[in-house]
Simulated scan of single mutants.
Amino acid sequence: MQKLLSRLARSAALAFAVLLTGCATPYLDGTTKEIPISEYKKPASPAPVQLLFEFQTKGVLNAPATSMLKDQVTAQVKASGLFSAVEAGPVPGGATLSLTINNVPLTDDAFSKGFVTGLTFGLAGSQVTDGYVCSATFRATPSAEPITKKVRHAIHTSLGSGAAPSNAVKMPDLKTAAMQMGKDVVSNMLNDISRDANFK
C-alpha cells in the first residue's frame, strides 16, 4: 500500500508540474513510418485468420488502451489484403495473428524531469520518452512454425520551453500520437509478415 501511495504521489506531482508550465507537447518519433498497403506482398490465395490484439504497459495488460486501439488495428488487418477474413474467434484452418504493443518508458526518472520543469515555470524544458515494442506472431495452423516480427516506435513529450526533439513530428495531443503510432507499427509488422518467405 505504501508503494502504491508513493507512486500516486509521484504521478500527481508530475501532473502538477506539467500544469504549472502550461505546456506539454507530444511528438511522434519519425524513425518508424506508416507503410502503404500497396507495398505489401499479397499472397496468391489469402486464408482467414483469427486476430488477437493486446496493448500492454510494462508487459501487463492495459485494458483501456487495448479498447482504444482494437478497432483501428482490426480495420488495418482487414484492409491489408493479406487475409480472406479477419475474425475475433477461431477460423477454419486455425490460423492466428497475435499483435502486442508494449509501452515501455525509456526516459530515466521522468518524475524528476517534470518536477524541475514545474519549479522553473517552464523555463527549463525537458523531455519524457515512451517507447513501444510491438510484436507480431503469425501461425498458418496451430502446429505451423510461427512467423515472428518486432517493430519499435516512440512518443516524445516535451515539457516546458524545451526545444522540439529531432526527427519527430509534432502531434495535436497524446491520443492522436498514440493512434498514429499504432498505425505505423501495425503497417510495418504486416509488411514484414507479407514479405516473409514462409508466408504464402
Rank of each mutant, 00 (worst) to 15 (best):
D192F: 15
H156G: 05
P146K: 13
T129M: 09
A178S: 13
A168M: 09
T129W: 00
S135R: 05
Q180C: 02
D130K: 03
S161T: 10
Y132S: 03
G162S: 15
T129D: 10
T157L: 07
T129E: 08
D173H: 10
R152W: 06
A144Q: 02
L190Q: 01
S143V: 11
P142T: 02
D130C: 02
N191M: 02
K149Q: 11
K170P: 11
D173F: 09
S166W: 09
S166P: 03
V186N: 01
D130I: 02
A164V: 08
I155A: 07
T148V: 10
P142Y: 02
T137C: 01
M181I: 11
S143I: 11
N188M: 07
A136Q: 03
I155T: 06
V133I: 08
S161L: 11
T176M: 14
V185N: 03
K183V: 02
K149N: 04
A154Q: 15
M181V: 14
M179Q: 15
A163W: 12
D130Y: 05
G131P: 04
G131W: 08
F138M: 00
V128Y: 06
V128N: 14
T137G: 00
N188T: 04
D184W: 12
V186S: 02
A144K: 00
A177K: 05
N188L: 02
V185A: 06
A154G: 11
D173E: 12
A144D: 06
V133S: 05
P172N: 05
M179N: 13
A140N: 00
I155N: 01
D130V: 05
V133L: 10
Y132V: 09
A163H: 12
L159E: 03
A168Y: 11
H153L: 08
P172V: 00
V185E: 00
G182T: 13
S161F: 01
A140M: 00
D184Q: 13
P172G: 01
R139M: 08
L174C: 05
K170C: 07
V151M: 12
H153I: 00
S187W: 14
A163D: 13
L190D: 01
G182H: 13
K170S: 10
V128R: 05
G160Q: 11
